[in-house]
Write a protein that binds this DNA or RNA. Structure first.
Lengths: 150, 150
DNA sequence: TTTAACTATTCAACAATTTAACTATAAGTA
DNA sequence: TACTTATAGTTAAATTGTTGAATAGTTAAA
């Protein structure tokens, strides 16, 4: 593939992924109200999925330092969305879980997001969506490989 | 499409787009050194493409307030990567352009990014990439439509 | 000419991030 | 057992990006 072609592909990809992310987050902002930031929603979404996890796990998952996680968790804890529970066996470890209030909030926001997505994807063939996400996941895998090579 | 299917698609999409963005930015971080942040690179990339633009245009393009742009531009200006030029006809307007130093920096980083992408996309069929970006652009378009509806 | 609109900036407040230092706990070793 | 090293999490200072409100200067409209 020629340099010009690659240049064009990079530009198209960067533009469209940037634009889509921005627009999707703008849509979701209305659902978040002033209760959560996007990063906070991502964290809550993750904890909801795994049920319970540690700061270290979150830091690895989100590829940031642990102190960054502490800061976000503190804010969510102050708002009453997250609980901290010390492990009795290993007292260094703190397990993070959603409170009932946190679960309820996430459930409500997630439902609204699904409604928005439903409107959106009705315009696509299911096979096109499937192919799109598959290629995206393949790209993700290729990035992991490239990272491991170094 | 059933609710469960939509739920699954949303989850897969959010996960993979988040993951790819993180990993791509991690790869690029090494190229940026301590000279630029990612947002600063996005801004420089845009100005490089259009040649010259205003704060207002950047604020619209990046969907943030003008004061956020002023802050970023100030930092890039302090580092000597960006020039400000007042419009003589309409003295409210300030045109932003890259300095020679800014152009040279962007050129160097962009070249490295292309090399990285080249390694990556060699693993894909050109038609698969083309289809992927087309669907992505279609999604972007659908988001614009949905936004305008409101 | 006065009023309204627009362009950009400043400032205060907050969120997310990194780096470095620190506390507490657990595990390994001599 | 006592010393050392490693791990989990937090704290504090500094930087960056963000919003919202206020402001200065300029242009357009009434």
């Amino acid at each position: 593939m020629s340099n010009d072609n690659i240049q064009q592909l990079v530009n198209r990809y960067v533009d469209v992924s940037f634009s889509v992310t921005k627009k999707a987050e703008a849509l979701i902002t209305e659902q978040l109200g002033s209760k959560l930031t996007h990063d906070q929603l991502y964290i809550i979404r993750y904890i909801n999925r795994v049920g319970s996890c540690t700061s270290t796990a979150l830091a690895e998952e989100f590829e940031v330092k642990k102190s960054a996680i502490t800061a976000i968790i503190n804010r969510l804890w102050e708002k009453g969305f997250i609980q901290r529970t010390r492990d009795e066996k290993d007292r260094r470890v703190v397990y993070l879980t959603l409170t009932e209030k946190g679960e309820e909030l996430f459930w409500r926001i997630d439902k609204r997001i699904q409604q928005l997505v439903e409107e959106l994807i009705s315009q696509f063939e299911p096979s096109e969506i499937e192919q799109f996400i598959e290629t995206y996941e393949k790209l993700n895998h290729a990035l992991v490989e490239q990272k491991n090579k170094k």
